[in-house]
Write a protein that binds this DNA or RNA. Structure first.
Lengths: 255, 255
DNA sequence: CGGCAAGTTGAGCCAGGTCAACTCCGGTGG
DNA sequence: CCACCGGAGTTGACCTGGCTCAACTTGCCG
């Protein structure tokens, strides 16, 4: 594959075009080498990554879209244990034996699967790339840990507030407004937060009634009171206890 | 510090004496250098690691004991979001701003805090050490993800069963029996699994009544029926529905 | 062996799960 | 462009697992 082809394949990929991401940190040779030993893949909602495909290409980089790790219980209960997005790099080497989760796309997704050998070589030789990948993995770990904390003891409203804030943290800093993109469906959101779709629905409505946010569409909310949202996410009972039903409406204010 | 001192300081530490762990992978020079730029620390239950101490020594390796990441909500609810044990290496560089969790010892703990500079240098230069640390971080991430799945949708009994199995996976393979060490107190366990101490207590009793395990002491259980424990942890409702009360006792068998 | 923290047991209650009916929305074909 | 269709989301009514609070027991450390 010529150097020109490499450019064509990788030029449009976020991992290359965003200077903070992995492929942007590579030297020309490394990028070329990795390009020769990687395969891009487009997925649609419900597509899963597993088995042989994974054992041959266990390093997965996400260019665009949302990928989930789903755990399925015997009786059909499903859980989304983690969400991965643009820039995340998953190392699934030798993962099959320990982890029962499947990698499932939650919408249109573009990924790039890399040969472990070339990836390992870059990791060993390019400290800058190593740092990027290391920090990404560390973020994944801390995100998962924070998420555990969110779903362990928080109640429905608090979980939802935390999720909106998590989306806010992860989304591109567009700089303009307080409109937050919700990149997953209601069902997925429910599975991610360990609750029912019905409860998610009621929760958003409740947050709207409290004047904390507006549900613009199924894909976006607008934060109207960030400080309040934070306090709810943080388990402040003074806020929660002000009931949010339309009947007993009350002007919200800070203490 | 002479080479002899280095040996004295590190010889008794699991990270050095266990060949699979980080310090065992270092060259003589690297070990010496790292030893000069690290501080061991003994902690007791409730001691926390924070602030300046962390910003100067943000790389923490655990020699012995159990360390938790605890998240505290405004109204006092506490969650243990993750548990770290022997061999785990925590990279807490630049962590203060994103993560509200505190690092708290759950009992007697020995840790070693390393200077980030030397650590980074080893990571860049010693591929073998890099691999060990990388895989440890990856394990931490997947453990956290699995844990999210455990607490999201499982009910009390299932969470407990999962926890016992998690302990089984993490504990030294002593090879002999099915006695599993429970390295944390009931309260901590409850906080880790997102439930109340009372529920933990009732859960263990229930598992005993079902003949799945014996609670030997507060610190250990003996698995009597591993397959059943696995099925419970896996959310098999056929098993759960056989009520475990002492009254309606019933010989458990497989389908 | 006394004192206190940790754990257990019991009774009652409520947040959120469940089930069923309804509405909304996006895509498709006439 | 609109009518239709099916899946996704919402709403309502009811029910239950596990939280709560309080009293009791156990285990641990000096």
């Amino acid at each position: 594959m010529s150097s020109h082809d490499v450019k064509k394949k990788c030029k449009s990929c976020a991992l290359y075009s965003d200077s903070k991401l992995f492929c942007a940190s590579l030297s020309g040779n490394e990028l070329c080498d990795l390009s020769d030993h990687s395969r891009t893949l487009s997925m649609k909602r419900g597509d899963t990554l597993e088995g042989d495909a994974l054992s041959h290409w266990p390093i997965v980089a996400i260019d665009d879209g949302v990928v989930s790790i789903q755990h399925l219980l015997q009786d059909g209960r499903k859980t989304i244990a983690a969400l991965f997005m643009r820039g995340d790099i998953l190392d699934l080497r030798n993962i099959s034996n320990r982890n029962r989760g499947a990698l499932v796309a939650l919408g249109k997704v573009n990924i790039c699967r890399m040969a472990p050998k070339v990836f390992a070589q870059i990791m060993a030789e390019n400290p800058n790339s190593q740092k990027i990948v290391w920090e990404n993995l560390r973020d994944q770990a801390f995100r998962a840990i924070d998420h555990s904390a969110d779903i362990a003891k928080k109640q429905a409203l608090e979980k939802l507030a935390s999720f909106v804030l998590e989306c806010r943290n992860r989304q591109e800093i567009t700089g303009n407004t307080e409109v937050i993109d919700i990149p997953v469906r209601r069902v997925d959101l429910a599975e991610y937060l360990g609750m029912q779709p019905e409860t998610v629905s009621r929760g958003f409505k409740d947050l709207e009634n409290r004047g904390v946010l507006d549900v613009i569409s199924l894909k976006a909310v607008k934060i109207k009171n960030l400080q309040f949202l934070r306090r709810i996410a943080d388990g402040d009972k003074d806020v929660i206890d002000e009931k949010g039903d339309p009947g007993s409406f009350k002007v919200l204010q800070f203490g």
